[in-house]
Amino acid sequence: MNIAFSPCPNDTFVFHALVHGLISDTPSFNVTYADIDKTNYWAANRQGPEVMKISYAALPWVLDDYRLIPCGGALGRGCGPLVLTADKSESPSTIAGKTVAVPSDRSTAYILFRLWTAQNIPEDIGDIRIMPFDEIMPAVQNREVDAGLVIHEARFTYPSYGLHMLQDLGEWWEEDTGLPIPLGAIIAKRSNSMNHKKLTEWIRASVEYAWENPAASREYVLEHAQEMSPDVAESHIELYVNEFTRDLGRDGYAAIESLLGRAAEAGLVPSFNLEALKK
């Protein structure tokens, strides 16, 4: 079976057992390591493998062809994207009419950013510039852009660039909704040959194996951690791998429905039947 997920520590930690044959009665897996902006478009263009990690923000474009798997993904609290600036400010209006770098225009981070700006910046921002996430903080630092929307380990490393947090979008979302933040989703093709129930069981078993044997995946995680230090990689895993990774549950589904429902109302994603999230 073909599967694609990012080289980020939370994904390699979660899928280590599955792709290394440590879960019984599973097929062999051919892994493609790809950042979520790539898998989002692969799914939308029906070009990707049978199983993929994508952004929850991309689901409205792909639900006709892919089914949401209720485990293995990333939702959580205290783990949202950040809006960073070179100069310290507490007023959202400081980026009104300015250039903001974002890692994707089809991501949860981008949806949260647009919903936050609509609520807090009446005149809106100026130019949105898409760039690789690892180039955003240097661009803000060098004042090539006025602000940057950052994700992943940038939560832990942005002070080393001398940058300042204008807004923690996860904190804003949680205060506004009381719900966790839906970040990355696991999807599988809607195919008669795909046993979605079995796949769910395999992924859940891989999550549980990772928790029970945290040292087993350490070498694999660090091999793909993009020069991340072991301490940062561990913090990354602790932040993004949680009970929602084991099972979405009621709050997980409520968070997804709230995020995508709001986004559809704002015209940020196509309208779709929310019931399709569970079918």
Rank of each mutant, 00 (worst) to 15 (best):
Ala96Asn: 02
Gly72Pro: 04
Met137Val: 05
Ile125Cys: 14
Leu68Ser: 08
Leu115Lys: 11
His152Arg: 06
His164Gln: 13
Ala154Asn: 12
Trp61Asp: 14
Leu59Met: 04
Met52Asp: 04
Arg67Ile: 13
Ala118Ile: 08
Met137Thr: 08
Thr85Met: 07
Ser104Val: 12
Asn45Ser: 13
Thr85Tyr: 02
Pro132Ser: 06
Gln47Trp: 12
Asp146Val: 01
Ile130Arg: 10
Gln119Ile: 10
Val150Ser: 01
Ile151Asp: 03
Pro49Val: 14
His164Trp: 04
Asp146Asn: 12
Lys88Pro: 02
Ser93Tyr: 05
Trp116Lys: 04
Asn120Pro: 10
Ile151Lys: 02
His164Tyr: 12
Ile111Asn: 07
Val62Arg: 08
Gly72Asp: 10
Thr108Tyr: 06
Leu115Arg: 05
Lys98Leu: 04
Ala101Arg: 05
Leu82Thr: 09
Ile136Met: 02
Asp146Phe: 01
Pro81Gly: 05
Leu166His: 10
Ser55Trp: 13
Asp87Glu: 15
Pro132Tyr: 09
Lys98Phe: 00
Met52Ala: 06
Thr99Pro: 00
Lys98His: 01
Pro103Val: 02
Ile54His: 11
Phe156Ala: 08
Gly97Thr: 09
Tyr161Val: 00
His164Met: 00
Ala86Phe: 05
Pro132Asn: 09
Pro159Ala: 00
Lys53Gly: 14
Pro70Asn: 13
Ala58Lys: 07
Gly72Thr: 06
Asn45Phe: 12
Leu68Pro: 07
Ala57Val: 04
Pro92Asn: 07
Ser89Val: 06
Gly72Ala: 11
